[in-house]
């Protein structure tokens, strides 16, 4: 049986300093307000291809929580060697055998955030991404940035808006899309590149 008293306290504690950490945990809607199914949100770390993105993480608490680790996976698509680009599954030791009941959902989410800034390509979850990370970091970073722009930015200009804007400037749509992708969705860089090329 999940220790609900503790989960309540954890949610309260975590959301109390949301201003500082940027990390929040909410009950998953559409789920009868059950305390076993939650959504965590972490901001992409600064100075990484994930900067500016907000990543949602699906959290399921097993019966044995907190004596068994919470099950977490990315609900937001993300391009990262230790996170499956297909399913969002996360390869992180504290979510497996290194879990300790003394850890909390918030500390776990902080570890996930730390993983975004420091990938471990030697222990990959997504082999394709890991290969790219090791062999061609530039392309990796561009793709990761593009994915962040495309999937993790709800508040600012969406990718479609950027495409529309650039097409209106007179560039062909296919070229606009591929250029945007190659620079990770950065509107200004794309414009520069389109003008020069």
């Amino acid at each position: 049986m999940v220790d609900f008293a503790r989960v309540q306290k954890e949610l309260h504690e975590c959301n109390k300093d949301i201003e500082v950490s940027g990390i929040s945990i909410k009950l998953k809607e559409d789920n009868n307000n059950s305390l076993t199914h939650l959504t965590g949100t972490i901001p992409g770390p600064l100075a990484t291809p994930y900067e500016g993105g907000n990543f949602n993480i699906d959290i399921v608490l097993p019966d044995g929580y907190p004596f068994e680790p919470p099950r977490m996976q990315f609900a937001t698509k993300v391009w990262h060697p230790n996170i499956s680009s297909q399913s969002g599954a996360i390869c992180l030791d504290i979510l497996k055998d290194q879990w300790s009941p003394a850890l909390t959902l918030k500390t776990a989410l902080l570890s996930v955030q730390a993983l975004l800034s420091a990938p471990e390509p030697d222990d990959p979850q997504d082999a394709v991404v890991a290969q790219q990370y090791l062999r061609d970091y530039q392309t990796f970073a561009a793709t990761a940035r593009y994915w962040t722009e495309t999937f993790a930015r709800s508040s600012t200009l969406g990718i479609e808006d950027k495409v529309k804007k650039l097409v209106e400037m007179g560039f062909p749509e296919a070229q606009v899309r591929s250029t945007l992708e190659s620079v990770g969705g950065d509107e200004n860089m794309a414009l520069e590149k389109l003008c020069s090329g």
Partner: peptide, 19 residues
């Protein structure tokens, strides 16, 4: 109980993180 059921009786570690 969780550890014994997981078959880890032989090496049940302390609950503290990284202990």
């Amino acid at each position: 109980i969780v550890k014994i059921n997981e078959g880890q009786s032989k090496r049940i570690r302390c609950m503290a993180h990284k202990c």
